[in-house]
Nucleic acid binder design. Structure first.
Lengths: 133, 133
DNA sequence: ATGTAGGCCTCCAGTCACTGTAAGGTCAAG
DNA sequence: CTTGACCTTACAGTGACTGGAGGCCTACAT
């Protein structure tokens, strides 16, 4: 299977698949004309990578997950630990975003948003009120 | 005021302040020895930038916000529009993260996490269940 | 006067995960 | 035989810094 079809099937851009090969995440065969040739196994890996990335795992996480995926003897506990750590990171990021959101909506609520020049949002950013860090 | 003090007062790393000068966000004076010299006005701008960045505005957003901040005639509506757009983006990102979180915790819950090798998390990533995209 | 410690300077490279672009080879159809 | 779609590599750019090298400048102790 050529890279175009592999791209369509996996949902990953061809560029991304080539990049994954560059960094050693996947090693497709080569046809005589030099084109990459993806087997079913490769397609499974691409699908795996696509899902793991869409869940926010980093490339290095994916490398580890792939090796765990291929090691049929590994303990499921190893995977669970990684997944939990990742969940913690996500929870943390969500909290951060929510805090930003809260601060900014407070400022937005205070702003009348009309033709007049005085603006509580800019005042807030300038430090007259609110503002973390 | 030298960059070290400016860094301490604004909470921004000196490297970051130099970077902001590089990209034209701020233009401190220079002392005779070549050192940057930050006035009160510059310090206000740095504080402004620090807060805007901590609320997740991009550098380009900050550039716009700063110019609005300096234009005492602008309508507050202009600022409010930007802020609202940014809030929308944040809300969107939070939703995305929550969706990832939900999918992954479902998988984590199913995983017994012991010495046995079969792992619902990896199975899920491989596509046997769940998985977006 | 000298040593040394720290702060400051510039410039270049690296981060992460791609994405865009250029310049060219290959293949199937008309 | 040419067109156009598809494939190849290699290099540069993204955002927002961050790290490091190599070299002045300043302050203070000896």
């Amino acid at each position: 299977m050529n890279i175009g079809e592999a791209s369509t099937n996996s949902g990953l851009p061809a560029k991304t698949i080539r990049y994954y090969e560059d960094i050693g995440l996947i090693s497709p065969d080569r046809a005589e004309n030099g084109y990459r040739d993806f087997s079913e196994t490769h397609m499974h890996k691409l699908a795996f990578l696509s899902r793991a990335r869409s869940l926010g795992f980093t490339i290095e996480d994916c490398r580890t997950l792939l090796s765990l995926y291929e090691d049929t003897d590994r303990a499921s506990a190893d995977v669970k630990v990684m997944a939990r750590e990742h969940l913690d990171k996500m929870a943390h990021k969500i909290k951060e975003l929510e805090a930003m959101q809260a601060t900014l909506s407070e400022l937005v609520d205070k702003c009348h948003g009309d033709e007049r020049p005085d603006c509580p949002i800019l005042q807030g950013l300038a430090g007259e009120k609110a503002g973390k860090r």
